[in-house]
Each structure stands twice: as structure tokens, then as C-alpha cells.
């Protein structure tokens, strides 16, 4: 029991640190990548090649004065960014980071909790994340913040629907809700993206909307709403919101990699005949490679596609995404029934 607690604690701390570091370095990567796509160089003054820039930004955020507007609801105003940050960090619990490691007799799972309702848990936590944005924008007592919060909540609720529906098809074909099992099923080349491509496309589009990234960054669009829900925030409150966005991006990349791209499974790795522990670690590294690809893809899209108009966003969500997801469920169901019937 002691070993169990210790291993889980170590794992949680490691994941926590990795998540924060990746979120931190996503900020510099975002700026660098934006610069490269625009034929510029990007920040390169702090440290070699600018790698200390996130630290400088962090110090700046901490040092700034925390301003709470006079007419803001103080408790909720402080609560907003905390909630956004907490929920963003919570979702990483069910993600399987790799195969289990064997240290002597002790087996260490590289997953904090293999809940049998893992996918439901992710959706539950992500939907609480809306409250962070909504409460923060509402408590600011600023019309731009309120508009941003309104947009955020309606956008996230409508896209969450399509997102969950797109995953229903995956759940039907895999027959499980547990993230660990879904990842384990996709060994070799049996990635779900090949059996459920439509589901993946719907999921990735909805992931863009869920994380408030361009082309769906209406809640915080600078050109229309100044800063959207975080207009009134300063210092670390603002930092938490911005940080939560990057953590969300990391987590949704991890979820995408787990559910659709085989998680920690690397094709042909089991044929090399390596020691199980080494194999597990290489698998984990490959998993992080997939996550990095998706994070880069998020940024790549950001600097390619302009923002949707709000009615276009709602049209796309309700009139395209949800019907498509329903059709996808129908097709998957029919194929499953036919397969049972004809035994192929």
C-alpha cells in the first residue's frame, strides 16, 4: 500500500511538472512558430535562442500589480482563474503516459488512475473549465468581459456536444470508456484514426473550439473584445488564464493522441526485442512526440486560418458538426451490427 501511494505521488508530481513546463514552453514555441511562419526570427534575446523567455514572462507576471476593479465581485473574480487552472490540470489524471514499468517486483503504472469511465471524466472536468471563464468574465463587471464570457460558454457548450457525440462512435467500436484500455487496444498500427477518421476530424475541430484557439478564439478576440473574458485581469490572474489555455492545448493533444493515434504504442517497437522497461520508456517518448505534433498543429492552424464570425461558428457547430457526428454513430452502429451478423 505504501509503495502504491509513493509511486502515485511521484507520478502525479512528475506529470504536474511536465505539464507546467510544456505549457510554459508552449508560449515561447507559439511565438517562435508564429515568427517562422511569417519569415521572422522571433524572440531571441533572453538566453541562447530565447529559451529563457518563458521565465522572464513568468517573473514579469508575478511582479505586476494585481488590480481588482472596484465594482467587481471580489470572491468570484479571484475564483475564476483558479477554477480555470485547476480544471485544466485535473484532466491529465486519466491519460495513460506509457506501459507499466517493472522495478524489481514492483509494477509502476504510468497512469495516475485508470478509471473505467475515463472519457466521461475528461468531459466532466473540461466542462467545469467553462465555469472558470464564465465566472471570471461575469465577475469583472465589464461589458467586454461579459460578452467574452457569454461567447465562451455558448461556444464551449455547443461544441462539447459534438465532441462527445464524435467519441460515442469510438466508444462503440472499442467497447470501453477507459483511456488505458483504449490505448492498449491500439497496439501496432491498429490506431483508431484509421477506423474512425470522421470521428477524428470532428473531434479535432471541436478541440480547437474547446481550447478557444483560432479559428474559434471568439471569447478572447483582441480585435473585437479587447481581451474578452480576461480584459480586467492583470498579474497572475491573467497569467493563470493564459496558462490554462496552453495546458488545455497540451491535454487535448494528449487525449487526441491517446484515443485516435495509439497513445504510447509505436509500430514495430515490439519486434525489436528490447527490455520491457526500455520499450515502455521509448513508447512514452513516442507518445510525447505525438503530443508535440498536435501542439504544433494547433499553432500551425492558428497562423493560417482567420477567425470565424459568431453566426458561422454556431452554424458550423449545430448544423454541421452535430449531424455529422450522429451520422457517424449511425454508420458505426450499422457496421457493428452487420459484423456481428455476418461474422467478418
Amino acid at each position: 500500500m505504501g509503495g502504491f501511494l509513493l509511486s502515485k505521488t511521484i507520478l502525479i508530481v512528475i506529470i504536474f511538472v511536465i505539464t507546467l513546463v510544456i505549457a510554459m514552453y508552449s508560449t515561447i514555441l507559439e511565438r517562435k512558430f508564429a515568427a517562422w511562419l511569417q519569415d521572422r526570427i522571433g524572440p531571441n534575446r533572453t538566453g541562447p535562442g530565447g529559451i529563457l523567455q518563458p521565465l522572464a514572462d513568468g517573473v514579469k507576471m508575478f511582479m505586476k500589480e494585481e488590480i481588482i476593479p472596484a465594482n467587481a465581485h471580489k470572491f468570484l473574480f479571484i475564483m475564476g482563474p483558479m477554477l480555470a487552472m485547476t480544471t485544466a490540470l485535473m484532466a491529465s489524471v486519466v491519460i495513460p503516459w506509457g506501459k507499466s514499468l517493472k522495478i524489481g517486483d514492483f509494477v509502476m503504472d504510468l497512469q495516475v488512475a485508470d478509471l473505467n469511465i475515463g472519457i466521461l471524466y475528461v468531459f466532466g472536468v473540461v466542462s467545469i473549465g467553462v465555469y472558470g471563464i464564465m465566472i471570471g468574465g461575469w465577475a469583472s463587471n465589464n461589458k467586454f468581459s461579459l460578452l467574452g464570457a457569454l461567447r465562451a460558454s455558448s461556444q464551449m457548450i455547443s461544441y462539447e456536444l459534438a465532441m462527445s457525440l464524435s467519441l460515442v462512435a469510438v466508444i462503440m467500436s472499442t467497447g470501453t470508456l477507459s483511456m488505458g484500455e483504449i490505448a492498449a487496444q491500439q497496439s501496432g498500427w491498429h490506431w483508431n484514426v484509421f477506423t474512425q477518421p470522421l470521428s477524428f476530424i470532428i473531434f479535432i475541430i471541436c478541440a480547437f473550439a474547446e481550447t478557444n484557439r483560432t479559428p474559434f478564439d471568439l471569447p478572447e478576440c483582441e480585435t473585437e473584445l479587447i481581451g474578452g473574458y480576461h480584459t480586467e485581469y492583470s498579474s497572475m490572474g491573467l497569467g493563470f488564464y493564459l496558462f490554462a489555455e496552453y495546458i488545455n492545448m497540451f491535454i487535448s493533444s494528449a487525449v487526441m493522441a491517446t484515443i485516435f493515434f495509439g497513445g504510447y504504442n509505436m509500430p514495430f517497437l515490439d519486434q525489436l526485442g528490447l527490455a520491457p522497461n526500455v520499450e515502455a520508456l521509448i513508447g512514452t517518448a513516442f507518445f510525447f512526440g505525438k503530443i508535440a505534433f498536435f501542439i504544433l498543429f494547433f499553432m500551425w492552424v492558428r497562423w493560417t486560418i482567420p477567425r470565424f464570425r459568431y453566426d458561422q461558428l454556431m452554424n458550423l457547430g449545430w448544423k454541421v458538426m452535430i449531424p455529422l457526428a450522429l451520422v457517424n454513430i449511425l454508420i458505426t452502429g450499422s457496421v457493428l451490427i452487420l459484423r456481428d451478423h455476418f461474422n467478418f
Binding site: W36, L37, Q38, D39, I41, N44, W300, V301, T304, I305
Partner: peptide, 21 residues
């Protein structure tokens, strides 16, 4: 069309940068 746009932007990743340090 989005894929086309993505191709255009990714091409710029490998272009010479105009910046002078």
C-alpha cells in the same frame, strides 16, 4: 481549402528570414 492554406504557411517555415539581428 484549409489544407491548401496550411501548405502555404508551412512553406514559409523554410524560407530565408528577412530579419537582421
Amino acid at each position: 481549402v484549409i489544407a491548401k492554406g496550411l501548405l502555404i504557411t508551412i512553406k514559409h517555415l523554410f524560407k530565408r528570414k528577412a530579419t537582421i539581428k
